[in-house]
């Protein structure tokens, strides 16, 4: 089993195999995303009752929280890929790490904007320089920095190497985001969902959050493979495998 997994992992390092793998998986991932979003949005907008204090404004949570979780998860995935890229010099890992940055930036942007919209009626302000909000804004800047650094090099591999180092430096921000509500007094509320203990959120409000979170995971995987496939194709346009692929399309 382990040997098989290792072999599959190594095989995915080959651009044509990775391209075909992505091509096969993307429609399935989008289908699962569609199902998850349909159920999650239906429950979030039609099934769960309003909150006794926040009224319906708390429904913003169903886009805000999955986006925030995914923004941080994307960074951790990017860091793992960056380590693989730096240590083993696997090009597909390098590419995946680099194309994860704009996706992570997108989720961070959703989190920040929806958070501001939620904050206005509940806190009376769109923005506060509080630890959670500020560390999340820094995450967006780190994502943008990684994208900029990668784009600044003509040599993709050199750019990916430099940006991977920046990814690893930026990892320090992830625990700061997570624990900011415990370490500092913040306007942002503390964690209400606890994976390893009782959650303070009412159980009736949980199912749409789970559906939306799972849907966002599939969405991320689909977006990652889509972008990686494009980057591979763009970088390898003079390679034999790309010519064969295009040749097949022409026929």
């Amino acid at each position: 089993m382990w040997k098989r997994l290792k072999l599959a992992f190594h095989k995915l390092g080959s651009p044509p195999i990775f391209y075909r793998f992505a091509q096969t998986l993307i429609p399935w991932l989008w289908s699962l995303t569609g199902v998850g979003l349909a159920v999650g949005l239906y429950q979030a907008l039609y099934v769960v009752p309003p909150d006794y204090q926040q009224g319906d404004s708390y429904r913003i949570l169903y886009v805000h929280v999955p986006a925030a979780w995914q923004a941080m998860a994307t960074y951790l995935i990017m860091a793992i890929l960056a380590i693989i890229a730096l240590v083993w010099r696997i090009r597909t890992a390098e590419i995946m790490a680099m194309v994860a940055a704009p996706i992570g930036a997108g989720f961070t942007l959703i989190c920040l904007v929806t958070g501001a919209i939620w904050g206005e009626p509940m806190w009376g302000t769109w923005w506060a320089w509080d630890a959670r909000l500020t560390s999340m804004l820094i995450l967006l800047f780190i994502y943008l920095g990684i994208m900029g650094l990668y784009a600044a090099f003509d040599d993709h591999r050199q750019g990916a190497k430099m940006a991977s180092v920046l990814v690893l430096v930026g990892v320090v921000n992830i625990p700061i985001i997570h624990f900011s509500v415990d370490w500092w007094t913040t306007l942002h509320q503390g964690s209400t969902i606890n994976l390893f203990g009782p959650s303070s959120m009412d159980p009736t409000m949980l199912p749409p959050l789970i559906w939306m979170t799972v849907a966002v995971k599939f969405m991320f995987a689909a977006m990652l493979l889509q972008r990686a496939r494009n980057e591979l194709l763009a970088q390898d346009q003079r390679k034999q495998w790309t010519k064969r692929l295009i040749g097949d399309l022409i026929e």
């Binding site: 319906d56 404004s57 913003i60 886009v63 939620w118 977006m223 889509q226």
Partner: peptide, 26 residues
């Protein structure tokens, strides 16, 4: 909804970003 403008604008912005992220690479 109560706070309908806030709820719907959040969902609309999230949807716009997701669509941009999904359709752009396609």
């Amino acid at each position: 909804f109560s706070y309908a403008n806030y709820v719907w604008s959040s969902y609309a912005i999230a949807m716009a970003v997701v669509l941009w992220q999904a359709l752009g690479p396609m």
